[in-house]
Design a binder for these strands. Sequence first.
RNA 1: GCCGGUGUGGCGAAAUGGCAGACGCACAGGACUUAAAAUCCUGGGACUCUAAAAAGUCGUGUGGGUUCGAGUCCCACCACCGGCACCA
Length: 924
Amino acid sequence: MSSSRRQYPFHLIEPKWQKVWDDQHAFRAFGPGDEIPANHPFAQRHKLSGKVSATQLPQKYYILDMFPYPSGAGLHVGHPEGYTATDILARYKRAQGFNVLHPMGWDSFGLPAEQYAVKTGQHPRKTTDENIATFKRQIKSLGFSYDWERELATTDTDYFKWTQWIFLKLYNSYFDPELDKAQPVELLEDALSDEPKQMGRWKNNAYLAGTHDAWKGFTAAQKNVRREIIDRSRLAFVSEQPVWWCEQLGTVLANEEVVDGKSEVGGFPVVRKPMRQWMLRITRYAEKLIQDLDTIDWTDSLKEMQRNWIGRSEGAEVDFQIAGSPEKIRVFTTRPDTLFGATYMVLSPEHKLVDQITTPEQREAIAKYKTEVAKKSDLERTELAKDKTGVFTGAYAINPVNGQKIPIWIADYVLASYGTGAIMAVPAHDTRDFEFATKFNLPIIQVVQPPDTKTNWQGFVGDGTAVNSAGTDISITGLPTAEAKRKITEWLESKGLGKKTINYKLRDWLFSRQRYWGEPFPIVWKKDASGNLYHEALPESALPVLPPSLTDYKPTTTGEPPLARAKDWVNLPDGSTRETNTMPQWAGSCWYYLRYLDAKNASAFVGKDAEKYWMGGKSAGVDLYVGGTEHAVLHLLYARFWHKVLFDLGYVSTPEPFFKLVNQGLILGEDNQKMSKSRGNVVNPDDVLKEFGTDALRLYEMFMGPLEMVKPWSTKGVEGVYRFLGRVWRLFVDDKSETDFEQAETTSQNTDTLLGLIKLDPVIKNAAPTPAQLKTLHAAIKKVTEDLDGMRFNTAISALMVFVNDAMTWEAKPVSVMRDFLILLQPFAPHLAEELWSRLSPVGNLSYQPWPKFDPALLVESEIEIPVQVNGKLRDVIKVPAGADNATIETAAKKSEKVLPFIDGKTIKKVIVVPKKLVNLIVS
RNA sequence: GCCGGUGUGGCGAAAUGGCAGACGCACAGGACUUAAAAUCCUGGGACUCUAAAAAGUCGUGUGGGUUCGAGUCCCACCACCGGCACCA
């Protein structure tokens, strides 16, 4: 704590204005159909009141923060970084006349509240409510211009009712590959029933025989599997697959939540375990999720992360006949052009054909290897990646291009979960195959010639020219890689041996958790006549499905969800039982930005008019979304997926939710290390606020450096901007009255009385500004405006400082200039700016004042400085009239006394004159 | 290994291919003060030469290149940060 004297009475000003804004509901956003009170500052600014339609409203600007998980620890300085940036822009856009939507809420389902409940027995709702209260108090003390009437929490029943509703939409939809969009599942039901209501394009079952792989092995005629066909087609489906199970957390996790074989939360080990789980078919949207990245304004690095995660790769599937067997092995390869170099094949140990093709002699070795692999955790499997292992099955396959018999091996470097779980190995041109072949002495044949002949072809994986690639039927020798790929794929297709294929790394989204504190599924389980379990959706009228009350929230070690303990809740009168899994934390954050548009709607997740108005327009979707980079492949991918489903089903009007997205950079501790309790370098915003006030905190967080950069905290830096705010104060305030204020403060606590003692500096007058003053003002307007448009907050603030440094020297301060300056200051330091504004201006909220426009004519100089270089080196700076032509400038440059010694007696070979910029004399 | 980002004073940083270091921190000197704090003013890239001024040389991670001119553009490297990683 510094013992320095307070720069200005922020401790009175900040609570005062926060209360004023609160009482006025000053930042309430009005949408179509809303009733605008005539005395609201928005009504006054836009001359609108009463019930308004979308066409009457000004253009919208939707600016969104990633809502926080309200943890018990409270806010850290990383939160206000993004929130301040968005608040500055919200205030700026409001001043520009936009109808700004700037909401805040709570992502409040989650592990910590539940773990606390397990320890203490306190209901998670209680903990959650307390934490929300703390977060809200802290966030409100920062003076952000949120519309608190749209506040929401994912744990509110009024909210998760609609989360469950959207789940029902997913459950009741399937992805139609022909229409390339989600469709209601009733259409499928019709198609599969005896008397379809609309036969349409399913008339001859052509569609059913088609590409939908969920239907493999079924026909519509098999009525006993009708339900199964439908259930397999749903976007929300049940699957019995190996999933990531975390014993310490007592739950399964999504792929995205597993990092290096450990849980993302807590870092506990996870293992593969087959379990019955709910999945969402995000893979159907892989292509759209990649393609539509091109339509949105995100950073390249973030787009790249999503692209990598989705992992699209183009190639071909090729069938290899097994020698002496009717079975074929299908492989996926991105390099069909290297088919002639395939000298062996590898199946993943889990491949379904392994046992069938293994020869008796190899059976024991194969069985042993499979057991070893099964024992390995995935962590071990990847950590030991360098050392290839594998076993020969004894079987051979026929290379379709040249009829050669090649051995079939199994090895754990081939993953069961990618492609077909089997590869053709081309050791000459694949690093992994090369390592394997070297270790097990398998043949290595060159089929690609590197473009640079000096490059060793062994292990060369780049593009080149095909060599040794001629069979009896097909030759690609001599073709460059791209063409070779095309030709051989066409040949394979014509022979029915393979086809062009696109593969994705993206897996379907594991959507159920064995937890208490999450949204229950609106699903029940029933038994059919033969005793088989099947699931059924609850009707919309049954929503919300509330979780039961429990006394024991503990996860089980078996994987049975804690909700199963509530027998009364689970068992329904009709004999059916409730689904006891809950949804993952990501569910609520998948659509919260839509609920803000119409947060109190009781009859729909969002009203149609509200959705159209706030999400439509020139920049479709959220205009600006700011948050941390940690959600690059989790929340941001899931939310895009849900949005696209809702779009396909006609519930939202844009294919993408977030038009522009910016990641704020991490704030490090003063020691340049990541802030953490153990390092003891954590900065608590409450402490900063107490000492310097929230305007200083806001200003500092923006002044530190560019928003998206990683940057270290500096308490001295906060003091610096705090001093700047003090200078602003003294620029406006009479120092004698400040002395009165200070004396009165020792006896009185009343804010109004005390602030009433502060008088304006008498040199602030209704007077015409001088040209120099106007120039200073308009230079600031220009710079601040341009920098805000480009989100360069740090340089915008420095422009404000430049203005103040100059204005401090003025003997007379014209009111008009000082007012415009306060409008510029308002987005950054709203409390101080409002307080000073209230003294300069008889009426009106500063936050709704029109943003000033700069006049370029005022910035024109009559005389300009031109640097003069000789051979590129600066020798002098000359002054010339602004309108001087090149010849005049050149003459003046040559006459400069400082330049003369460098050109004297030398020949000037060339003269470069850049108008208004510089002169460069080239001499020899 | 692959992909992305970043390298500029003691520190945070700023510079449409045209005066490198705006603005701020820290520091130094001065004014005010009994004194300190606060405030106000002034000065700070390095080096050489000066008593001082003036002047000169070098300087944006490294090495090349393009250009009258490069922190900025191109090529090749190095370091750090972030993401992905046996994905065929």
